[in-house]
């Protein structure tokens, strides 16, 4: 019961971290936020694991921590250090407007979630709202930002949102599927890092 409330807090923190991401132009901060966000996701999964006592979810927790909290941010930081960009300079829409837009996306996703909600969701109906909102805001980040880094962060946010939605609707995916998805993600980050570095070297982004 109190665990439910705490799980709710973790989910909220996922959304808050995305909002902070929208509000800040600094890329280093964004990567840190992504790491924090993944940690919150991992805790949420852990709570589910304790609640259902499911080995799948425990495994999922460990993998999330290893990949999303540690490895991916580590590689992103490494790339960032080489590229030497510290902040997003111009965006298609200004920060306050983007945040207000993110707010309206949250309202919209709550509306959508209420429309298509059905029972069988682990921790309250609003997990789906939050994951939808996170998804939309991540997509918005990818659209409005110009730097490749921000777009990667947006992409990773979308991935987290899908992960959250999957974990809230089902009681965790099979471990193998999750592992595969995470490995795909990891490889794509590696490829993107190499791409950024090469672009930097050849075209001077």
């Amino acid at each position: 019961m109190i665990m439910e409330k705490i799980a709710e807090l973790f989910i909220i923190l996922i959304l808050v971290s995305v909002v902070l991401n929208v509000s800040s132009p600094f890329i280093k901060f964004a990567i840190k936020l992504y790491s924090f966000q993944s940690l919150m996701l991992a805790f949420y999964i852990l709570m589910g694991a304790v609640h259902f006592n499911s080995i799948n979810l425990y495994g999922s927790f460990v993998i999330t921590v290893i990949f999303k909290v540690i490895l991916i941010p580590y590689f992103l930081f490494k790339t960032l250090k080489k590229v030497k960009i510290d902040k997003e300079i111009d965006m298609y829409i200004g920060i306050p407007e983007a945040v207000v837009f993110a707010g309206s996306l949250t309202l919209l996703s709550n509306l959508i979630a209420q429309k298509i909600i059905n029972t069988g969701i682990t921790f309250g109906s609003f997990v789906f709202t939050i994951s939808l909102a996170t998804f939309l805001i991540g997509a918005m980040l990818m659209v409005t930002r110009k730097t490749l880094f921000s777009q990667i962060i947006g992409f990773l946010t979308i991935d987290n949102a899908i992960f959250l939605a999957a974990n809230s609707i089902t009681h965790g995916m099979p471990l193998l599927v999750e592992l595969g998805v995470l490995f795909d993600l990891f490889v794509s980050i590696l490829i993107l890092s190499v791409l950024i570095l090469n672009l930097r070297r050849n075209v001077a982004v």
């Binding site: 959304l15 902070l20 509000s23 306050p96 945040v99 207000v100 309202l107 609003f126």
Partner: peptide, 21 residues
């Protein structure tokens, strides 16, 4: 400063959405 205050607005909006649940 608007960046900061817009975050505050957004957080209270999320709280509002949570409370109308």
């Amino acid at each position: 400063v608007p960046n900061l205050l817009s975050v505050s607005f957004m957080l209270s909006l999320i709280a509002m959405i949570l409370s109308i649940r």
